[in-house]
Design a protein around this nucleic acid. Structure first.
Lengths: 236, 236
DNA sequence: ACCTGAACACCGTTCAAGT
DNA sequence: ACCTGAACACCGTTCAAGT
């Protein structure tokens, strides 16, 4: 019921030269950019002990600020986690799009299904190398659905990209099934599931040791793609 | 460093007829089976608000007992969650094995790959209908790996069952790939991922409404199985 | 043998008061 | 406009003391 009337105020520019100021510059009462510092502290905490290890108080402590201060910038712990998730999702998207851009032209990898494979591989690779960040952007516990416009949009962008790629693959006769939506959901479930199995600690039970993870990821992705491809190549 | 020397004592049988007892039966100081009651209370809390809504204190409250009492039965909150997870995993396994037993004999469903499909379908169906329970047994946050022998064993049993089924399918020439381990992991990633997407609230974004979930689950499972089958049937 | 109830060290969140 | 610091209502967990 409390409306945190947030005006569209411009962000203040970084204060210039504090050292030679005449004021007592020891420790500024007003933090430079507390919002930013809190997000970074939270990201650090995530890296150290997973999302559950993030507490507003600890983030405040690391920012050198009182327990109540963060609540000037985030209405709740969820809102802070939300900001963290947006940060992670942005990085995720950037890396995937970079990987796609690097795909060598005029090779099999340049055909639509090859690009689809690139997408899946980049997804899996990022998830294997940034498990805690992946956890944050995948679990809904960390954003309230209303506030999470940023996360949702970056993700929707990736979904669209995949959808277009798949549509091209179909147009070029590379796919066996015409039900693209289902193929896409299945593909997503596959990579999401593999990434989640890693996060949730299931790999030891499956005999997938740390170093094997990325190799196995590639193998199951290829298995899936062979399954949806129109002319399945015999294994080399 | 504290060893909770748990003797292999037999569980005490339920006390008979309390109503006509001569002792002051109002509210027994010693609870009948507090351990059991606490697990049930925790299961109820999980049903109401997900795993994070479980607190030892609230479980104690519902059991009508002081905040410290649960710690006579569980060394920590994690241990309580562990017990809850074992309960859920037991139910999960029972349901899947029942579904497999019901598979009609002497039909396509009776061939190994058909049984493999049954397994996957039962897995998905249970996960769709018991999302919070599924979350508990899938996320590692809820058991300490050392204590979780029960969860691990029930799960390992299901994995073995799947493995045997897949091996039979291969022996009967139903599979395209000889790398059974990889097929199994891919299959697991697929169903696990789909179940997790549901839990993590991704379905709205994918246009999968509540009622569609089970239908879609079946569709992607079939898509996967067609992909690994040796003689892919044209879509009907 | 099992439970109580007070205690401790943590949380998230609020709010007057300070600068 | 932003931050402090005390306060409140919660946790998980421990431990003497009760029955």
């Amino acid at each position: 019921m409390r409306s945190s009337a947030k005006p569209p105020s411009a962000k203040l520019p970084a204060k210039p030269r504090r050292r030679t100021a005449r004021a007592p510059a020891a420790k500024p009462y007003h933090h430079g950019d507390l919002r930013r510092v809190l997000i970074d502290a939270a990201l650090q905490l995530v890296g150290e002990g997973g999302p559950d290890a993030v507490s507003v108080r600890e983030a405040a402590r690391r920012a050198g600020v009182s327990p109540g201060a963060p609540f000037r910038h985030f209405p709740s712990r969820d809102a802070l986690m939300n900001a963290v998730a947006e940060e992670a999702q942005r990085r995720f998207r950037a890396e995937i799009e970079a990987a796609l851009a690097e795909a060598p032209a005029s090779t099999p990898a340049n055909k639509p299904l090859g690009r689809f494979r690139c997408l899946g591989l980049a997804y899996l690779r990022w998830a294997m190398r940034n498990p805690t960040h992946f956890e944050i952007i995948s679990s809904r516990r960390f954003f309230d659905h209303d506030e999470a416009a940023g996360v949702s949009q970056d993700n929707a962008e990736l979904i669209d990209l995949t959808e277009r790629t798949l549509a091209e693959a179909f147009a070029q006769g590379q796919l066996r099934s015409a039900d693209l939506k289902q193929v896409q959901i299945a593909g997503r479930a596959l990579v999401y599931g593999f990434a989640r199995m890693n996060i949730d600690g299931h790999f030891p039970r499956w005999g997938v040791a740390g170093a094997d993870a990325e190799r196995t990821a590639e193998a199951i992705l290829d298995l899936f793609i062979e399954g949806i491809a129109k002319v399945p190549g015999k294994s080399a």
